[in-house]
């Protein structure tokens, strides 16, 4: 019923003893996520909240506790190194929540991920995480807005994803998996990667893709969609009203002076690829329901 994460996911939390790490680990444990270990260098051997074993390294978490997925709440100066640590430890899926990682650090991470010997997938950074409703929640999204079902959701935004998911849930459409790929210009999983995973997942019947102005991630996804996707799809692009040349919060959300990456161009690519578009952010679920009834 899902992609990437499910009840077999064995999660290690990097930065488990920090404020954000502690708060969100508790939320994820309460949701039912199988948190097998945490990592805080120097605190190995202790237990987090008297329950989850703390390791000094991710390597230890993999060997001693069988971790296969990691989530990162480490501050920006150390986050890229934490990603590289997880890759070297053989983690299959890394979810990096941290916002504000230097672009150069992420460029080096990207190089590492591109190496043919590396089989790790990265989601993020600067993202809300990934959730398979009813099975596994990794990240900072509120669990209760989700509902088990068969719609896959991928988005560059955090809270705008919640908005779309909440619309689906209120209309009775549950989700197979929801992925926030993050707003940074250099990230791990792209819109296209996520759409492809949903397209190949037998338990996903329909897909929602939410983008933002800037870059070409949505256009690349649309190229793929045009050729390979026959599942019903709907989408939205945030930033139609944004002025040119200004970065709107997300480092990736900038329209270049030559007009590339505008909302208009992205909406057009989506329409050409057969994706139903929501002209308005409050009509994302409605747009999907014009071609999919659940």
């Amino acid at each position: 019923m899902s992609i990437l994460v499910n009840k077999n996911t064995r999660l290690v939390v990097q930065g488990i003893t920090g404020n954000a790490g502690t708060f969100h680990t508790q939320q994820c444990v309460d949701y039912g996520t199988n948190v097998v270990a945490g990592v805080t260098p120097g605190k190995g051997g202790l237990k987090w909240e008297n329950s989850v074993p703390i390791c000094n390294t991710v390597n230890e978490a993999v060997i001693q506790h069988g971790a296969n997925t990691s989530v990162i709440y480490v501050p920006p100066p150390f986050a890229a190194d934490s990603i590289l640590e997880s890759i070297d430890a053989g983690i299959e899926l890394i979810v990096c929540i941290t916002e504000g990682i230097p672009v150069q650090d992420m460029a080096l991470v990207r190089h590492k991920l591109n190496q043919s010997s590396v089989n790790t997938r990265l989601i993020g950074p600067n993202c809300p995480g990934i959730i398979t409703p009813g099975q596994c929640k990794i990240g900072i999204m509120p669990g209760y807005i989700h509902k088990e079902g068969r719609v896959g959701v991928v988005s560059r935004s955090g809270t705008l994803t919640y908005e779309a998911v909440w619309q689906l849930t209120q209309k009775g459409l549950g989700q197979s998996t929801c992925i926030g790929i993050g707003g940074d210009p250099i990230n791990g999983t792209s819109q296209k990667d996520a759409v492809q995973l949903f397209n190949e997942d037998p338990d996903t019947d329909a897909i929602i893709m939410i983008g933002e102005i800037g870059g070409s991630a949505e256009e690349e996804a649309c190229e793929y969609i045009k050729k390979h996707v026959s599942k019903p799809m709907a989408g939205f692009i945030a930033g139609a009203s944004a002025p040119k040349g200004r970065t709107m919060g997300h480092a990736g959300a900038i329209i270049s002076e030559n007009g590339a990456g505008t909302a208009e161009a992205k909406f057009q690519s989506m329409e050409e690829a057969g994706v139903k578009i929501a002209k308005n952010p409050s009509e994302i679920a409605d747009a999907l329901m014009t071609c999919y009834s659940g």
């Binding site: 809270t159 939410i210 945030a238 919060g249």
Partner: peptide
């Protein structure tokens, strides 16, 4: 809260 939702909010005000 959130850049994407902030842009979407601007968009809907305009619409």
């Amino acid at each position: 809260n959130g850049a994407g939702l902030a842009m979407a909010t601007m968009d809907i005000i305009k619409s």
